[in-house]
Design a protein around this nucleic acid. Structure first.
Lengths: 189, 189
DNA sequence: CTCTTTCTGTAGCGATCACTATGAATTACG
DNA sequence: CGTAATTCATAGTGATCGCTACAGAAAGAG
């Protein structure tokens, strides 16, 4: 059951597909764009990845996994304030990174609401822990603060897509961090 | 130089076009969708509005004018905090209004960055006035706070488009309002 | 070598894209 | 009325959409 071997690297092609979807979104990305970006003809694309929907599914899932890793790394900081500051700082830099498309696929693509829901849950969990540990006043509603943070990151992504500089997106992140509720014992800087 | 009169109301058709672009964005909106929504055949559409680009231009400009009026009304409040709170509250309700499409065309559509820039400028001006009048500490950078507010509103629009409830979007607005810098003489509630 | 299997590029499928040629229909003017 | 002007609906245009039939090419198995 052997046959002619594939003439391209599947992972490399998938990475190119991620970039293309990232740049132009699901709907505006055509198969022609993908085949050009991936260096593959249509039949090879369909044989290796199924159809456009399944390719997007695979691409966005891999993108999501990487994003989650980055979020987890930031969120592992000892205090909530450090965690959120690190996450927003990373986010601002990633959204304006010159080596990748602008903004964030997960935050931008309409059909990835489920991924955003997962992100929201992770943030909510981290915030809950912060409240338990006294980093935040217990008047804070983790769900609400998590929604706020997702909204801010989405706004940062949009700003980056509009051509906003790293400094401008970082400033948005900074404003959000400065906005976090402080516990009474913390100094207001 | 008379001729057969137009059998549809141009303003009504334009309103329908606004709704359609609002719901599905420029790129994903097809002429077929527009003709159906507007109750007009393609030749009539092209005769009355030019091509798809010019129709979108006209539709988005009218949408923008209305949005600006709402923003101006909110921003006219005596203090910056009231102004921003009113604007974000209105925004949250508008984004989840059941009688209109979800979210905000101006904040969502990639090609309307120029309109967002104008909104940013208005907010920046209002914030500058607030700093001059002592509503905000003079450490506040109007540009940055305006960018932050635009980002939050964009995030609210995205949340609404994802199906978020009025309460959830209002909560984001509330979190942003609570985040506004206070002058020393103001009580921290 | 042949046979089977799998991948390759070419070329094209029907559907839909934005857009329009055409001629009948409907008005005002004389 | 007749004529000019304008809009109307029908029925398409070529281009591109996602996707695939087909036949040749490249591998292992015998």
């Amino acid at each position: 059951m052997a046959g002619r071997p594939r003439s391209f690297d599947r992972d490399t092609a998938l990475a190119a597909a991620i970039e293309q979807f990232w740049r132009t979104g699901y709907e505006e990305t055509t198969i022609a764009m993908l085949t050009r970006a991936m260096g593959v003809t249509p039949p090879s694309l369909y044989a290796a990845f199924g159809d456009k929907d399944r390719l997007f599914e695979e691409a966005s899932t891999l993108y999501f996994r990487r994003t989650c890793e980055a979020v987890d790394r930031a969120v592992a900081r000892p205090t909530v304030h450090e965690a959120i500051a690190a996450m927003l700082d990373d986010t601002a830099r990633a959204h304006t990174d010159a080596t990748t498309p602008l903004g964030c696929l997960m935050l931008t693509e309409p059909r990835l609401a489920a991924q955003r829901e997962v992100l929201h849950g992770r943030l909510s969990d981290r915030i809950s822990r912060g409240v338990r540990e006294g980093d935040l006043p217990d008047t804070v509603q983790p769900d609400t603060l998590a929604s706020f943070l997702v909204a801010v990151m989405r706004g940062m992504s949009g700003c980056a897509k509009d051509g906003g500089s790293t400094e401008e997106v970082l400033a948005i992140a900074g404003a959000a961090v400065a906005a976090l509720p402080q516990t009474p014992h913390q100094a207001q800087v």
